[in-house]
């Protein structure tokens, strides 16, 4: 259940050990240790620029750290030297971004079908069937033939989640997936993610939705200045922590009514 307990390596699907990463002169990660078990939902919270999104990009081999060990689903990510090896890893690890990034020239259905058929070589008929099931799951069946430009932000983000799931990933990374959405559509995206976590999908979320993080996470990780300041159950991080910095951050963000409105309504 808890992250960073090195004894549970048997069930660990993601393990970062003393990961250091710099972009040029800027040190972004200053020794990250993190263990995530299969089936867990882990939220990474913390102020902007604390390295949250970079942690996700390390797990997906989109960036390579200067030092440290990263193990994802049995693969030593830090030791991958060829782009083709990193591509093999990325096919197994889904990632959804803040800006949805759907392919604007393809219909919703083709957005979902493209990668499995062209990248994994999956059968098209079976993939179309899977894509329709996933669209049902994210409640967008009627939008299969629409183009991304015709959808709202929340709808596009749900398609992006379905697109990631079509690759049948072993875990999914969510990088501030609701940050670009207007408050009214945040709920519909969180609903989809909550459903996914209940189905047992290993999920790592970088999020500013504190109420949501508290509700769905097995573990919450607080980062600041490239380090993990603390981690623990949502109860620990959000309510019983002694760390004044975390109390200040959590209180400042979820103390008002905003979190409750965004999380609760329209679901």
């Amino acid at each position: 259940m808890t992250a960073s307990t090195a004894t549970e390596t048997g069930a660990a699907i993601v393990k970062l050990e003393d990961v250091h990463l710099s972009f040029g002169q800027t040190e972004v990660l200053k020794g990250i240790d993190l263990t995530i078990n299969k089936g867990d939902a882990v939220s990474i919270i913390g102020p902007s620029g604390s390295g949250k999104s970079t942690i996700l990009r390390c797990i997906n081999a989109l960036v390579t750290p200067q030092s440290g060990k990263i193990t994802v689903a049995g693969t030593r990510v830090d030791q991958l030297t060829k782009e083709s090896e990193r591509i093999q890893l990325r096919k197994r690890v889904g990632i959804v971004f803040q800006q949805y990034n759907l392919f604007p020239h393809l219909t919703v259905l083709d957005n979902i079908v493209l990668a499995p058929t062209k990248i994994l070589g999956a059968d098209r008929t079976a993939t179309v069937k899977l894509a329709r099931e996933l669209l049902e799951k994210v409640r967008l069946s009627e939008k299969a033939d629409a183009y991304p430009g015709q959808l709202s932000g929340g709808q596009q983000q749900r398609v992006a989640i379905a697109r990631a799931l079509a690759m049948k990933p072993e875990l999914v990374l969510f990088d501030e997936v609701t940050s670009a959405l207007d408050p009214e559509t945040v709920g519909e995206v969180l609903w989809v993610i909550r459903d996914l976590i209940r189905d047992g999908m290993t999920s790592i979320l970088v999020t500013h939705e504190m109420r949501f993080a508290e509700e769905i996470s097995d573990t919450v990780v607080f980062t600041e200045n490239g380090r993990i300041v603390d981690h623990g159950s949502p109860q620990q991080i959000f309510h019983t922590t002694d760390n004044p910095r975390i109390r200040q951050f959590v209180g400042g963000l979820s103390g008002g009514g905003r979190g409750a409105v965004r999380d609760g309504e329209g679901i």
């Binding site: 997906n60 989109l62 591509i87 093999q88 990325r90 096919k91 889904g94 990632i95 971004f97 800006q99 990034n101 392919f103 990668a115 990248i119 994994l120 992006a160 697109r163 990631a164 690759m167």
Partner: peptide
């Protein structure tokens, strides 16, 4: 980056 992240 999104396409790279999917394994393209």
């Amino acid at each position: 980056e999104a396409a790279r992240g999917m394994g393209f």
